[in-house]
Design a protein around this nucleic acid. Structure first.
Length: 413
RNA sequence: GCGCCUGUCGUCAAGUGGUUAAGACCUCGGAUUGUGGUUCCGAUAUGCAUGGGUUCGAAUCCCAUCUGGCGCCCCA
């Protein structure tokens, strides 16, 4: 026996019975994003590895251990693990900084991360996302969040939780990091292995460790004092306050989460996530924030920016299954040529219609019709002779015989 | 990358060392030579993720690999 080739670990086929849900996600994205003035952009699925190393940050897990990287003609190439870096690259390369701000872009497509698959996590997965360039004001952050909420609402998802936080700017964040490290220094030996790692790499992440011994340490008063302190500088604080004012005015409910830290290096000030309780441990459907220094870091003009991405598989798992739509009609006939002719006539008028290419027995064809179509179009010897068609409504069992050119009216009425 | 669990027809499954591996759904054929969705009858796994091993005998026990799930890390 020949060995079967199976889909690779962490990848999935999107089968015909699920594809309508994907169409819906894509259709609503186009519709809602267009309303807000966003234009779609499609960037390549692979880029030079350096883009992600510099863009996403080479201390992040994504870049460190999750990228699909390969060599071709002495170049290191990587399958995109996310699309913000690619969009920024294109923004710079195509001189979009010269367009009048804001520049609003959206995208959808597959992303690749070499991770251990589990519910809501695959190695090839799809994201839909938006990026807005050129606006420093918190109105941009608010609009982007509003857009996410609006899009989710269009899909029927309304009871999701929006969490926000401000990471401050590189300057005040650095001071905060140092404070955390300082107060935790005496406890370093007692921290779990992960936390000891995070101590160097990303001290902000330490704080929501789930290990009991770490929790105890963080509960100590002098450490709590640092965690609870408002570390962000005046300017960042005012930006954050503006954001909350906008969200209140827009009636967007949110929860402030001081421990919300995102793992991509490029974020500053606003970060946010939208979560669902129906997703298991990978519970974020949407994640994003502000990244004011990324454009400059990748060699462009200093341009503020804010954006988010949603996991389409996660969205799908929250959506009710869509029943496949029935055909308008199924032709029942033992004269394939006549059936074919009628089918083409109707198809050219926009009718969804099929007939039996295998020319099975009459009853089999009718049985099939009742399963897949709203109407059966019976085209037997008698009808062919008379140049007519019997149109049978399969839910009411009503049947009338009409002229061929009247069939379409019968079906559409 | 780490820890725990898992894998029987296209799908959902019964079977837990001893003759031909239940059942249901789907699919296909027949009852029914032009009237369906109901009903009845029949067909469909020489094989139990894959490869080794233990045994007189393995879907069942052991090992490895692969896969799926959960948790950690991290993220959408």
């Amino acid at each position: 026996m020949t060995k079967l080739i199976k889909v690779m670990k962490g990848t999935k086929d999107i089968l015909p019975q699920e594809v309508e849900m994907w169409h819906k996600l894509e259709k609503n994205a186009l519709e809602i994003f267009t309303r807000y003035g966003y234009k779609e952009i499609r960037t390549p699925i692979f880029e030079v590895t350096e883009l992600f190393a510099r863009g996403v940050g080479d201390t992040t897990d994504i870049v460190n251990k999750e990228m699909y990287t390969f060599e071709k003609s002495d170049r290191s190439i990587t399958l995109r693990p996310e699309n913000t870096a690619g969009v920024v690259r294109s923004f710079i390369e195509n001189g979009m900084a010269r367009l009048s701000a804001p520049v609003k872009l959206w995208y959808k497509g597959p992303m690749f991360r070499y991770e251990r698959p589990q519910a809501g996590r695959q190695r090839q997965f799809h994201q839909v996302g938006v990026e807005m360039f050129g606006i420093k004001d918190a109105a941009a952050d608010a609009e982007v969040i509003m857009l996410a909420v609006d899009y989710l609402k269009s899909l029927g998802l309304e009871d999701l939780e929006v969490e926000i936080n401000s990471l401050g700017c590189p300057k005040c964040r650095e001071e905060y990091k140092n404070k955390i490290k300082e107060v935790l220094k005496p406890e370093f030996e007692n921290l779990c292995e992960d936390c000891q790692n995070r101590y160097e790499k990303n001290p902000l992440r330490l704080l929501d460790c789930k290990v009991d011994t770490c929790k105890e340490i963080f509960a100590k008063p002098q450490i709590q004092k640092v965690i609870q302190s408002d570390f962000i500088c005046e300017e960042c604080a005012s930006h954050y306050k503006d954001l909350k004012t906008y969200l209140d005015r827009l009636n967007i409910k949110y929860v402030e989460n001081k421990l919300l830290v995102r793992g991509l290096d490029y974020y500053n000030r606003t970060v946010f996530e939208i979560k669902s309780n129906n997703l298991g441990s990978q519970n974020a459907v949407c994640g994003g924030g502000r990244y004011d220094s990324l454009v400059k870091n990748l060699g462009g003009e200093d341009t503020p920016a804010v954006g988010w991405a949603m996991g389409m598989e996660r969205l799908n798992s929250l959506l009710p299954v869509i029943e496949p739509e029935k055909l308008d009609a199924y032709i029942v006939s033992n004269s394939p040529a006549d059936a074919f002719e009628l089918a083409q006539d109707l198809r050219s008028n926009g009718v969804k219609v099929e007939f039996d290419l295998a020319n099975k027995k009459f009853t089999k064809q009718l049985e099939k019709a009742s399963k897949v179509a709203k109407f059966a179009l019976i085209l037997g010897e008698d009808e062919i002779k008379a140049g007519k068609v019997s149109v049978k409504n399969l839910s009411t069992s009503q049947q009338v015989t009409v002229e061929r050119n009247e069939v379409i009216n019968k079906i559409m009425e």
